[in-house]
Design a protein around this nucleic acid. Structure first.
Lengths: 246, 246
DNA sequence: AGCTCATGTGAACGATCTTTACATGAGCTG
DNA sequence: CAGCTCATGTAAAGATCGTTCACATGAGCT
């Protein structure tokens, strides 16, 4: 039925067929190249081989194209974070750190999406669909934090999961935004952004009283019984989260 | 006798007198209003009451104006961070948190500067003066981290100050960028950005093994009268940095 | 007074965003 | 198949912006 029409359009459609998709792809490439600020509507049209006015049949204006990209970015972002979280397997702490790395990986591998999502200056709360997509992505981190909070050592107060999620998010975004992007604010770092974030999160979790090392803390007054789930997987190397014995 | 010339120009100079300064101020206002991306060279000229070509007598192009603003912003930033640090008085941890609050305050109170400095996408490493100014600002955080690292509990490994500084910076930037700005990505938060960052830093420091209750260090010649109640104000509640457990 | 140079103007070019009137052909209906 | 309709693309035009260039002006110096 309708796939035949799309088939024909795809092969060498008259009216280009799938201009909308072509424009999104073109814009992605342009944003990755020159940043969200430097990307121009006309360029996207030119790259798609149509006139400068054609995009207006598919997007109200340049901002709507950007919003569409950001929305799609949030969806892919959520998908990757969800995959990384893997429902907390094999253990909560390991999975949590994998989420952190996935965050940075996304920022690094999809600079165009990340740029549109967080650095293009477009108002998220103005577009309900965009806000919802953003919310869903954040909820992955939030749900993971929830599970992590439940691991709090008995006797210690349980940290609010929402706060933890916001903290983790701000760390990941801070590292990504400052150190893990193109040539924006790159500096000479003593370690890779991934290592930097991993150490940061580990230290933070330790500050919350989570056991991030399978060895019992000598100086700590925390009760030694460690949930078996948290003790497995990657722990803190002896000497602290920053020591990299590799 | 050159002050007379500036005097005349200032009152109602023919050649506007201090166009450069006027342009910087106009640009600051415009960036605060519409973001660095939305700011236009022509608008700044119009706001200063000159023709669109006049700014080129003072700035090579639009980017140079933006760089000038960023550079000036880094200088003010450094100045405020230095004042907040106050050489670690009355005690290192208190001063350190004051730096964090100063960071957020700057981002909130000087959105135009912050935008130009961190979110305008201009290449910091392309302009040596800009890079130097940025370096100087970061060095304040770095120096503070250095002092903090020296406080490491005996017996525990001493964390690298550089890493600590990068961590703190990423936290502050993450919170500022995500939650403490205009209407960029504002969300409903369970706490203020300041509280969020303060808790984050405190938990992090605790994870490093630092005592997070405020006490003057023996290092300085500070008077000792800081009773435990000093730590009850905005310090760490007994239950943890995030407040009372429920 | 007159020279000189920094500073501002006006006009102009090319690029961009956006709108408007018009063209084209794909798919449906009879 | 003829013809209608509507989605989709084009061309042209207006507005704004970044930028340059020739030119004007007047401030300060000799």
């Amino acid at each position: 039925m309708s796939w035949r029409k799309e088939q024909r359009r795809a092969e060498r459609g008259y009216h280009h067929g799938n201009l909308k998709e072509a424009l999104l792809q073109a814009a992605l490439g342009l944003i990755a190249e020159k940043g969200a600020a430097g990307f121009t509507f006309a360029d996207a049209a030119r790259m798609a081989g149509v006139s400068a006015a054609a995009p207006y049949r598919h997007f109200r204006d340049r901002d709507e194209l950007l919003s569409s990209i950001a929305e799609r970015g949030f969806e892919q972002f959520e998908s990757r974070l969800t995959a990384a979280w893997d429902d907390g397997r094999p253990d909560t702490v390991t999975a949590f750190e994998r989420v952190g790395r996935a965050y940075l990986a996304f920022a690094r591998e999809e600079p165009a999406f990340y740029n549109a999502m967080f650095e293009s200056g477009l108002p998220v709360d103005a577009n309900p669909a965009l806000q919802a997509a953003s919310e869903r992505a954040f909820n992955v981190i939030r749900a993971a934090a929830e599970r992590l909070a439940a691991l709090a050592s008995p006797g210690t107060p349980r940290p609010p999961a929402m706060m933890m999620a916001l903290h983790i998010w701000s760390m990941a975004h801070g590292v990504a935004s400052l150190f893990s992007r193109g040539d924006a604010a790159r500096r000479k770092l003593p370690m890779s952004p991934d290592e930097l974030l991993e150490a940061e999160v580990l230290i933070y979790l330790r500050g919350l009283g989570f056991p991030t090392d399978r060895r019992p803390q000598a100086k700590s007054a925390e009760p030694p019984p460690v949930p078996p789930e948290a003790s497995s997987g990657s722990g803190v190397p002896p000497g602290g989260p920053w020591g990299k014995p590799k």
